[in-house]
Amino acid sequence: MKLYEVAERFAVWLVAVIVLSLLLIPIVVIVLTSLTPNSFPTIPRDGISFQWYGEMLSNAGLMRALVTSFVVAAVAAVLAGIIGTVTAFGFVRSDIPYREELATFMLLPLMISPVITGLALIQFAARFELSSGYPSLILGHTILTLPYVFLIVRSRLVTFDEELEAASRILGANGLETVFNVTLPIISPTVISAMVIAFVVSFGEFTATQFLISPDTTTVPVIIYTMLRAGLSPEISALSTVLIAIMVIGAVISGALSR
């Protein structure tokens, strides 16, 4: 191997290590400070303690926020999965005019600031007398996560081998039977992966969510922000670590399903 090739490979690895370090060090610090035995978030030096996880579990407000986030994220992921998959089928399998232009509109929740989306949703909810809390949160999170499902499923359908569907029709199946017996079983890992990503995005959504919550339906990101206004605490680090773990698990599941 020539010297310049060695130098090039070393430079690539060095940049990769630096970038990964910048991404991971803040997360590692949060995890470590959640294990401190002190009453303020510091990196433990004289042993670790899980007392702040116990404090978190005994905090009724935090547990209620976790349940709210799970319920909202799960329902929003399912709704976004169904709507996004059906919409992706419509865009890929039909010859609607201005298809690409309309697809761009499907991505507006990704391009518009979440603050604007939150304001629009709260005005929509007020106009149609939709109560705050679960109804508004589920509607808002479904809209915010729908583009992710649409993009992922659409990309899978674009590369789908349509000869398999043609063979199904030749053997006597109609269009609906072909979709349910051939297409959906093949793309189901992609659909589930997209729903997992939607769940993760919903679980960590903060900016638009703060406009949609009610006193009894506060989500984890919002309650973390509320607690931060009173000062840093190892309990916040413990709750943040739980949030990180949920997102990492979701990312791993999504990656495994994609492969």
Results as ranks from 00 to 15, higher is better:
5 E>A: 12
10 F>K: 15
12 V>P: 07
13 W>A: 12
19 V>K: 12
22 L>V: 07
23 L>S: 04
28 V>H: 07
28 V>N: 06
31 V>E: 08
32 L>E: 08
33 T>L: 14
34 S>I: 01
34 S>L: 07
38 N>S: 10
41 P>N: 12
43 I>E: 11
45 R>H: 12
45 R>W: 10
60 A>R: 15
66 L>R: 01
70 F>Q: 07
74 A>D: 07
77 A>Q: 02
78 V>F: 09
80 A>I: 03
81 G>H: 03
81 G>D: 08
86 V>M: 15
88 A>F: 00
89 F>D: 02
90 G>V: 02
91 F>R: 11
93 R>Y: 13
93 R>P: 07
95 D>W: 03
100 E>C: 03
102 L>D: 08
103 A>N: 04
104 T>D: 15
105 F>D: 05
106 M>H: 02
109 P>F: 00
112 I>A: 13
117 T>L: 14
121 L>P: 06
122 I>Y: 12
124 F>N: 11
127 R>F: 13
129 E>H: 04
129 E>A: 06
134 Y>C: 01
136 S>Y: 00
145 T>A: 14
146 L>W: 01
147 P>F: 01
148 Y>S: 08
149 V>A: 03
151 L>E: 00
155 S>L: 11
159 T>K: 08
160 F>K: 04
160 F>G: 03
161 D>R: 09
168 S>L: 05
169 R>L: 04
175 G>W: 08
178 T>S: 13
179 V>N: 13
180 F>D: 00
182 V>L: 10
183 T>R: 09
190 T>F: 12
191 V>K: 06
196 V>N: 03
198 A>N: 04
204 G>Y: 00
204 G>C: 00
205 E>I: 00
212 L>D: 01
214 S>G: 01
216 D>Y: 09
219 T>Q: 08
222 V>C: 14
226 T>S: 15
229 R>P: 08
229 R>T: 10
242 V>Y: 13
242 V>C: 13
248 V>M: 11
251 A>P: 11
253 I>D: 06
256 A>V: 11
257 L>G: 02
